[in-house]
Design a protein around this nucleic acid. Structure first.
Lengths: 200, 200
DNA sequence: TTAAATACTGTATATAATTACAGTTATGAA
DNA sequence: TTCATAACTGTAATTATATACAGTATTTAA
């Protein structure tokens, strides 16, 4: 959904927030008022641009007829992460699920579908979706999503220093992973802020 | 939510559905069209009645300015269940959290905050919120919320017949619970359809 | 370098939408 | 019985809203 200009992103986020807070989308003049436009047509133009870029839809002749498109209103679920690119790259997105502000105390940037049983002792099972926030600084004790030499893993961070990082699987049959950030390529993709499991 | 007439409930549910499906609430005339009213004032009257009963709010002078009130839009979280009354009784509701249609494959009637460690082998931990659907018929293999002689418990249903019901804790340090529905008062409050955990 | 896109102002208008007022009919409670 | 509530019809007025057209200035991609 990218290629939004800075201004367009501002307006898009405002619309998103309004829907979240008010329960209905803003009008052209509400948008204009918020951004200081002297003409409602400025908002109209922006809406058309946002529609053209596919992040929202407009219902003709309908007041407040703004709907966020699927991709832009949902939170991506990341399945298997292909090596190389960024974790949120298109090809890693398995689906998107509706955003639900308010269910968890932290914001969610994406969900990661859990593979393997290395975290079962803290109740994280295969195929669970763990909610990840990219911006919380990682700290010891947190469950983190780490990328070590392009391999993505979910573990508890138990030690972090310039020369040594220890990632602990929460399963007694596995051993701690020790990483030297100076030698290995270590990236923290985010912190686990919640868990979602669907019994279907 | 209280004492809505049949007609009011129909209209309220329609509004709820419209918000969910369209992303914005209906106008008076859309409501009228749907229900065959020949005057938009019929919808206006209904909206006023629904507002009076506290299930929604109306923003004056605002097109589509209908918002569902917290109680009616959220899903109750049940903490400790007091003996006697129904599980969804006011005093059991710890809080409500926003409804999120689409995150789980089944509908959610309420969340139950888990006490104890009797289900840790299936990754259900203390203080997790389990999502419960009241209307799915209980069947063996499902995780169910059962009330045995007024005590509420979450277990896996492993056997169900007229004379014997077996509820299995998913923790090797606990033993199966055998209930005779003819002698004991056994009520199934619902089936667990999902799990929500907040790492805060 | 040039056309297209971005980001607006300014004006105007048809129509979408809220909402008041005046009624009618039916039902159930005081 | 009588009054409040429910569930509408019918009309109408004000205002809220979408949206077109005509511009201007700046930035960006071909």
């Amino acid at each position: 959904m990218k290629n939004l200009t800075k201004r367009q992103a501002e307006i898009f986020n405002y619309i998103k927030d309004e829907i979240e807070n008010n329960g209905y989308p803003p009008t052209r003049s509400e948008i204009s008022k918020t951004f200081g436009f002297k003409s409602p047509n400025a908002a109209e133009d922006h809406l058309k641009a946002l529609k053209k870029k596919g992040v929202l839809d407009l219902a003709a002749g309908t007041s407040r007829g703004i709907t966020l498109s699927n991709q832009s209103s949902g939170i991506p679920v990341i399945g298997l992460v292909s090596a190389g690119g960024p974790i949120l790259a298109e090809e890693n997105i398995e689906k998107t699920i509706p955003n639900n502000p308010g269910i968890l105390s932290h914001g969610i940037d994406f969900y990661l579908k859990v593979k393997g049983d290395s975290m079962i002792d803290v109740g994280i099972f295969e195929n669970d979706l763990i909610a990840i926030n990219k911006n919380i600084p990682v700290k010891t004790g947190s469950i983190v999503v780490a990328r070590i030499n392009d391999e993505v893993t979910v573990k508890t961070l138990t030690k972090i220093s310039d020369s040594q990082v220890i990632l602990r699987p929460e399963n007694s049959s596995y051993s701690d992973i020790e990483v030297n950030p100076k030698k290995d390529n270590l990236i923290f993709e985010g912190t686990c802020v919640g868990l979602l499991r669907d019994f279907s």
